[in-house]
Nucleic acid binder design. Structure first.
Lengths: 280, 280
DNA sequence: CGTTCCATATCGCTA
DNA sequence: TAGCGATGTGGAACG
């Protein structure tokens, strides 16, 4: 094995502790963070969040992931979304805390202090907690996870230089229409994309065969009222930007529209063309 | 230890395999899924998705989570969001596949078939893959993760009966305004919430001290043009629903607005009141 | 189921 | 950094 291969191998590994002590867990998490690893902790914990909003979560068994870019994720056994999280850019800190054994059940006891209740209880078995804290600024946000029981700590190292190749996006729909403008209507001529107006940028700006200005708003999927409002904003703004007498057509391009959106389109003299991001 | 405690203990545990064989990994994943555990796999894999859109991801080291509710998450070491995923409601399947060693680098070789290239290569060391597949319908979607190298498989069992307590939401802002209507303006009287119109439901519907109809749209944070359009839709719709001569005021309530939104408000004769979800 | 709208939305781009 | 709009948005409430 060459030196290069050794280094690569060294980068691709996992360290796992099962049922570690709180202190061992702390050391493993700290080491993983220091080495730029992706760290996971599974166990019984409470969660507190304060920042754009505030939340608390009582004790339960959850999976926590700390990423080297500063992101933090707390997952329960349900849902695609984490129950609590922190965006990339945070500083992760890990520590041990000696807490009142009742504190995790009721934060009312948080300020009780060492009043002799630090003995073990039959339900918790320990008064020590593994504390994970992820903090960032702009906006100021703080996530706090306290484990009273840790079943597993892991630190994963690896490489991922690849990029996702995705198709079926609004960008694909745009290319499809620019490649074949007649899909909108015969004689349509695209003149610009992302054309700026006082209300924002128009997806596709062009002219119809009669020389009338056309504003095209693209959506990759079935649309509701919000997309109609968006198109309307652009048509209004362009009408002001150009002469007051100029005729501006607004066309929504999407696979389909809801009934309410259809009504709004009609109400405001806007049009709809059914088109999907990829050819069927 | 009582029987009840034993059962509870049995529910809270983790099974971990480090550097398992592909076959052992398959068995551990299958067992975890069968037992309703949260299963994680870390290793070098490729990912394919097809459904609402389509995507492919070349080989890299990633963390995969399979939840008992059918959700699947593929995480790299960066970003809060998974690089690929599947929503709850999927069926997870796990299997071993014998594949052409080059197949994971280029799917062009996928249909090559057994043409004698199944010998091990120096870079992969094996031609077997651990394949995770998560499928659902409505819409038809399929996620396929193929591991060439598995560093860890874990299956976590636990309980989480708690619910998140969250504050600082739009609902809090609504309650704040309903409790103290003068925060909007002296003499404001709320008459209904979620009042339905042809354009959708109004957050708060009421009257000012002069008996004029008031439409209030709430946002928990700083708003842009979309919120103004939304308010405008409701005001327009209510104007049609009521008599044509009725005066309808539209008031946007949020912590702050962007310049462009401010301009749109003025353009359409709408108003703005600065208010946050929670008292400062 | 589909529709509608909120979200600690997140993410990428641009001025 | 803030604004703006897309997202395989996800999720809940409602019809």
């Amino acid at each position: 094995m060459t030196r290069s291969q050794q280094e690569q191998e060294q980068e691709f590994h996992a360290v796992t502790l099962e049922r570690p002590s709180i202190v061992d867990a702390r050391d493993a998490v700290a080491d993983g963070i220091d080495r730029g690893a992706l760290v996971t902790v599974f166990g019984r914990c409470t969660v507190e969040y304060d920042g754009r909003a505030s939340s608390t979560l009582d004790a339960g068994d959850r999976h926590v992931m700390l990423k080297p870019d500063g992101a933090a994720l707390v997952h329960t056994d349900e849902g695609q979304q984490p129950v609590n999280w922190q965006p990339p850019g945070c500083d992760h800190e890990v520590s041990c805390e000696r807490r009142d054994a009742d504190a995790d059940r009721s934060d009312a006891a948080e300020n009780a202090g060492g009043t002799g209740t630090e003995t073990e209880t039959e339900t918790t078995g320990t008064t020590e907690t593994l504390t994970l804290e992820s903090v960032r600024s702009t906006p100021d946000e703080r996530l706090l996870v306290r484990f009273r029981n840790v079943l597993q700590v892991s630190a994963f190292s690896g490489t991922d230089e690849t990029e996702l190749a995705l198709s079926g996006t609004e960008e694909d729909l745009r290319q499809r229409l620019l490649d074949e403008p007649d899909l909108l209507e015969p004689g349509f001529t695209p003149l610009a994309t992302e054309r700026d107006t006082a209300a924002g940028a128009i997806d596709i700006y062009g002219e119809d065969d009669a020389g009338r200005t056309v504003v095209v708003e693209l959506k990759r999927r079935r649309v509701g009222p919000d997309a109609v409002s968006q198109l309307r904003r652009y048509v209004d703004a362009l009408g002001r930007d150009l002469h007051a007498d100029a005729t501006v057509r607004g066309i929504l391009v999407a696979p389909s529209v809801t009934d309410r959106a259809k009504r709004l389109l009609t109400e405001h003299g806007l049009e709809f063309i059914s088109l999907e991001p990829t050819a069927t």
